[in-house]
């Protein structure tokens, strides 16, 4: 897992498959390591579906969900993204 974290600190982004290829292991192994690192707080998931409320200021939204600025169901199939916690 230290190797995995080392790769993440070089500034480049990678897919799980690329990490698996670079670390000579399987994508499943990378996925479980990511899940573990996330649970111990060393990496965190970046939200790609978070709806931002503008408080109705953008003119197209009302209430908690900002339909004017972030379409409903936007980024629904954007996969998962993690980043290192510093």
């Amino acid at each position: 897992m230290n190797e995995l974290l080392g790769l993440l600190n070089d500034g480049n982004s990678r897919t799980i498959e690329q990490l698996a290829a670079e670390l000579h292991t399987s994508p499943e192994d990378i996925s479980r390591q990511l899940e573990y690192l996330e649970n111990i707080g060393m990496i965190r998931k970046v939200s790609t579906t978070e709806k931002k409320s503008c408080g109705g200021k953008c003119g197209g939204c009302s209430g908690a969900e900002c339909r004017g600025c972030m379409p409903k169901n936007a980024s629904a199939n954007m996969g998962k993204v993690w980043e290192v916690v510093r």
Binding site: L8, G11, N12, S13, R14, T15, E83, V84
Partner: peptide
């Protein structure tokens, strides 16, 4: 430059 760090993406 040192503020930049990588991300992991699980492509759907």
């Amino acid at each position: 430059e040192e503020d930049r760090y990588g991300m992991i993406m699980e492509l759907p």
